[in-house]
Design a binder for these strands. Sequence first.
DNA 1: CTGAAAGCGCTTACAG
DNA 2: CTGAAAGCGCTTACAG
Lengths: 351, 351
Amino acid sequence: MNSEDIARLAGVSRSTVSRVINNYANVPEATRAKVLAVIEKYNYEPNTSARILAGKSNNTIGLFVISVSEKERRIYQNAYYSSFINAVVDVANDNGYYVLVHTIYSEKDYSKVKQSFLQKRICAGILVGNEKLSSALKEISRMGYPIGIVDYDPEDIEKYDLDDSNLIVVNSKDYEGTTDALNYLIGLGHREIGIITGRMETYSGRQRYEAYINVLESNGIEIKPEFVLKGEFHKKKTYDEVRNLVDSKKLPTALFACNDDMALAAMEVFSENGIRIPEDISIIGFDDIPLAAHIKPALSTVKVPGYEMVGHITELVISKIESKVRKFHYESIPDQLIIRDTCTNVRDGAF
Amino acid sequence: MNSEDIARLAGVSRSTVSRVINNYANVPEATRAKVLAVIEKYNYEPNTSARILAGKSNNTIGLFVISVSEKERRIYQNAYYSSFINAVVDVANDNGYYVLVHTIYSEKDYSKVKQSFLQKRICAGILVGNEKLSSALKEISRMGYPIGIVDYDPEDIEKYDLDDSNLIVVNSKDYEGTTDALNYLIGLGHREIGIITGRMETYSGRQRYEAYINVLESNGIEIKPEFVLKGEFHKKKTYDEVRNLVDSKKLPTALFACNDDMALAAMEVFSENGIRIPEDISIIGFDDIPLAAHIKPALSTVKVPGYEMVGHITELVISKIESKVRKFHYESIPDQLIIRDTCTNVRDGAF
DNA sequence: CTGAAAGCGCTTACAG
DNA sequence: CTGAAAGCGCTTACAG
C-alpha cells in the first residue's frame, strides 16, 4: 500500500494524496475527506524513508548517553541517568519527535554521533553523561545540527573551539547549590568540613569542588588536604577513601559529598565503624536520588532537578530545530537544599 | 557529498561505490582500496533513508515502554525500567542496530507501535511494561514483524488470538520465585503469612498471587482474606493497606510483598508504628531493586534478572530479524532468593 | 485546485 | 569485474 494505491482508490493523483497528508491549504474539503477516508480504510501510513528522501525532516533526536568511566556498562545503575532518558523521550514524543538512544562507552564511540548525522538518521543531538566531552565535540558542533549538552563548562566552548551557534548548554547551578550546603553546615557551627570530590572531568565535579574551596576560604576556614577525599563520583573509590579517613582517627565534624552515591558509601563505612550520623559526623550529599529519602537516617542533600533539566533542554533543542535561528543558548537551573536527618549542630555532637 | 560524488572522485561508477560499501565479493582489492580512500577522505556516510528505500533493512528496533497505570509520567521512578532500556540499547548497539524508544501512557498510544511499523521506521519491536497488553497487540502481532514481549502470559496468545509466529515472550519464573520465598518463610516456622499483591493486570502479578495461594494450600495453611493486601505494585496503595492491617491489631508473622517497592512501603509503616522487623514481623520482597540491599534492615527478596532478561530478549529479536524463521519462542528465566535481614524464625519473634 | 514529472540518494538485477 | 538504468515511495515546484 503506497501513495499511488491510495491515489487510485480515491480517484486522484499522488500529488493530491501528498497534499492531504501534508495538510496543504489548497485542497477542497470534499477532496480531502475522500482521500482521508481511503487512507483510513487501508490504514495507510507514508513511508518515512521516502518522505525524508524527498525532503521532509526525519523528526528524530539522537540521545547519546555517555559513560566512558564506568567499568560496567550499566548506566541505569546510576539513578541519575534513567530520568534523563525518560525526560527526553517524554518531551520529544509529545512534540511529535522520535528518539534514537545510543550509549557511548568509549572515546571511539563518539563517532556514532557524527555517523548518525552524516547518515541523516537524526536532525539534532542531546548529549548527557559524566565525562569530559571529547575533542570529537568540536567536529560535531560544526556539523550544523542543534546539539544540546547537559553539564558542560561554557568556557570550554571557546577553549575547545566549538561552534557555539548550534549549541544549547543546560547545567544545574552546582556552584550555588554547593554554597548553600556549605553555608548550612557552617551555620550549624562546623569549621572542620571535609569533601568527597567527584570527577574533575565533569563540569559539575569541578564546580562543586571550587565552591567548596571558595566558601571555606571566604569563611576563614582552613582547607585540610587530609579532609579532601577523592571519590570520583563512585562508591567503590569512596569506600577506600573514607576507610583511610577513619583509620587516620582524625575526622572532620562534617562531610560534603559531591553526590549521594558517595554520601551513602561514606555512611556505610561510618556505620561499620560505629561512627554515628549525625552525632559524630554530619554528612550531606548532592543529587537527591530516590534512595536518599529512604535510608536511615534520611540523607540531607542538594536536589538536582534532572528530569526537568533534561526535559527543558529537549524543548530548547526542538525549538532550535524548528526555528532555524542559530544562536548559542545557555541556561542554568537552580538546585534545592533538602534538609533531612544527617546534619546536626556541631555542639550537639560528640566532639 | 553523495555516492555519485564519491564515484566521480574515485573514477568509478555509483554501482561500484555501492558494492564497496556493501562489501560485495566481486570487487578487486585495488578498486576497493581506491574507493575506500575517497570515502574516508571525505567522511562520506551513505544516506540511510536512501538505503532503506532501495531495499536495505532499517536496522532499527522499537522499544516501547508501557506505563498506562502510572499517574505520573515518570517511568524511571520505577527502577525496574531503567535497566530495561539500558539492556536493549546495549545489546542492539553491539549488534549494529539502532533503537527508537517510545513511551506508552495510554491505550491510545499503542497506535504508535503500529504506526512505527507502517511507516517503516522499525523492523522489530520490544514491549516492556506493567500492564495487560491491550487488544492492539493482536493487530501488532499480525503485521509480520518480530515482537519481543516481557512479562506476558503465554496462554493469552491463543486467548487473544495473536499470531505467535512472530512472537518472542520472555518472563521471569515468578511462580517458582514466589514458591522459594514462601517455602523459606514456612521453613522458618511461619504459618500466618500475608501477601501484598501486585497488579492483576500483569502476568507476574497474577503468577505471584497464584503461587501464594497454592503454596499455602499445599502446606495446609489457611489463607485469611484479611492478610491479603492489595498493593497494586504501588507504594501509595500499600501504605493504606498496611495501615489498615496495623489498625486491625491482627498481624501475620510474615508478609510476602509482590515487589520491593511495596515491601519498603510496608516497612515504613511498621517502623512508624513501632513494629520491629524481623522481630515482630518478617517481610520479603520481589525484584531486588538497588535500594533493597541498602536499607536497614536489608530486605530479603527474590531477585529478578531484569537486565539479563531484556538483554536476552533483544538478542532473540535480533536473531529473528535476521533468520526469517517465523516460529514462536518462549523462555522463562529463573529468579534467585536473596536472604538478607528482614526474615527470622517465627519462634525468635515476639509472637 | 490538480496532475505530470523531476528528483531525493541509494541498491541491484541486467547486460556485457 | 563493472557501468547504465530501473526502481524504491515520497514531495514539490511547475504548468495549466
